[in-house]
Nucleic acid binder design. Sequence first.
DNA 1: TTCCGATATGTTTTT
DNA 2: CATATCGGAA
Length: 798
Amino acid sequence: MSSFDEMDAFEGASLSARAMAARPMPYLDELNPAQREAVERLDGPVLMLAGAGTGKTKALTARIAHLLTTARARPNEILSVTFTNKAAREMKTRVGRLLGQPAEGMPWLGTFHSICVKLLRRHAELVDLKSNFTILDTDDQLRLLKQLIQAANIDDKRWPARMLAGIIDDWKNRALTPAKVPAADAGAYNHKGIELYAQYQTRLRELNAVDFGDLLLHMVTIFQIHTDVLEQYQRWFRYILVDEYQDTNVAQYLWLRLLAGVHKNICCVGDDDQSIYGWRGAEVGNILRFEKDFPGAFVVRLEQNYRSTPHILAAASNVIRGNESRLGKELWTAAEDGEKVRLIGHWDGEEEARWIGEEIDAMQGGTRGVRPIGLDEIAILVRASHQMRAFEDRFLTIGLPYKVIGGPRFYERMEIRDAMAYFRLVVSPGDDLAFERIVNTPKRGLGDKAQQTIQMTARENGVSLVDGAQIAVDNGLIKGKGGKALRELIDGLARWNAMTRGPRIEVDDDVVIDDGAAPMRFGAPEISHIELAQIILDESGYTTHWQNEKTPEAPGRLENLKELVNQLDNFENLQGFLEHVSLVMDNEKEGDGVKVSIMTLHAAKGLEFPAVFLPGWEDGLFPSQRSMDESGLKGLEEERRLAYVGITRAEEVCTISFAANRRVFGQWQNSMPSRFIDELPEDHVEVLTPPGLYGGSQPAAGIETRAAEANVYNSPGWKRMQARQGQYGMAQPKESRNTVIDATAVASFTLGERVFHQKFGYGAVTGIEGDKVEVDFDKAGTKKVVAQYLSAKDDIPF
DNA sequence: TTCCGATATGTTTTT
DNA sequence: CATATCGGAA
């Protein structure tokens, strides 16, 4: 096992503590009294209750700077955990800026998960893993569970694998190994839950793999059992900082408490009012009982808000006041009054999207409000991601640039996962799950029967699937085309694997081992990992597979593969890349261009925008019915906190809206305005409805129903619906067509005409049926699309 | 074994 | 409505 001298070398500190000691502390001058207290109280437990927009990141980064400047700790002795990669990244840059140099030497600033991976790779053997274990994604996890479920003869229709995955996840969040699951949970998953959980863990170990929850669970287990290891780290991490403490689950909580147990130099920052991850196992209780866990804790409240106007703040405060269990904070601001929170009802979801689109146009043009607001200063925050569609559709039609944050993720796409499975298999031939994924992708004529043969052979010989396949082929168990193809695959894998290394060389014993992997006994590879990746994809036939595919999305997939290979440029080798991807599933592109942001309320936490739209405030959608069904009052309170988070994202203008009708599952459904609307303080809200139909100021209780009714029949959306009956597809002279297609400006197309579509690109019209046009897209193949979405080739909106 | 069409099924939120 | 899965036919 490792000594700590080694650890020092392992992480390397580029900032010298001594060099910092004499440095001035300019960052302190920028803090208000409360922040300053939180920063200067370096020793002992500190709880920073930081309301929305009160400068908590500022305080946190200043605290790190202060720890370094006062030479309390070296950069690599500070453990600083966040929940998201985004937050970790931001802290890194901000600390760097405060200190006037890059914060490269802060190896332990990261997410819970990334830090745990690092630790677990060093101590893998303590939980019967090898340090090069793979981290499974949800897909692999589910496939594995399905196998176990089938083996146990359980009807996975009645008891879906997803459900079991959820249950296991939940246990892991609570730091429960199979042996520790309480009897009360014995009934889970048709009384088979615990048993299957145990089997699953065994299987993971056999595969030398972990899932996401394991990262923490294993580390907690190690710390609990191997006190010597724990003690090392207790000494090593002299100071601990935790961001978003209200979101910690039991496992994370235990992990922290173990590490901070001796010196208790732990500073937790959080806001109980922003706890919105209860469904993922987060325990608000952790923050509520901090003072009990750490007696004598210094508690400081940050209550001065620097983000929002008083109206917005008042609205948020009044909503959150509806919650019973909270520590209680009152935000205040020195800012000028500004606009009231705006509330408007719509006939349906499309109308809501249309209206918001127009508002955004008005905001930019400066025809509304005190100043023009840029597109990148505007966000639309929805409760559930399916709400995004209406906005995407609408913005596409009117040519309004937008970006979806946290949308369909790059690394979750099928072709990317396939490609990654190939990479995984090349890097570690024992990765059976990866093998299963790609044996018959592209089709190699290896169906169920052949795959069973491979499985059996592997099991009989106690080897990995790749080796099993090798044996099966050698013994002629798999004949014909499939056998030949399989042989090619196996040979290919071996060949590619050899390419990851250079020629064998001798090493000195004192070479520093920096990644916990096997000592380097090989020279530099002869080809770069980027070339190798390309070779793998080409020689395996995977690229060809998509080239031959005639489906509309094939070209896009090829593009994605190209992008994947490009991304490799940022990494040293394939291993490094695979590790990165399993930890940060988000592709942090999208940064370019001035665009409106569309995202879920969850994704919006920690962000702020001058103008925020909060659509879909309807009972059942928000607060979500499911949340209330599953967790009752607790669920409702979490939804309310979500509302609070939403409102407090706004700096200048906050617009809340709801629709009377919405299409769900293709079925029209009508709903009541959200109960949270009743909780908005009347004095701080302006109801936007035609004045004639909504007379004077009324009690708040009546606002929403009136607004809804008032808007139904005279809304532009209603008129538009009536106006548009049967108007599409009518031939019109080309000259009369509008460039930007609006509901009122009906487009027409002729056969063979070149057209442009926002999602599918350029193409030619091959058929017209009513309001639908069939287009043969250059890249996306033939598709039927609604005429509205198309524009003539030469006048592309934006 | 693969491919196609029919049918059933689901929608929170994510490291 | 859109996708995912399943069963049957080539």
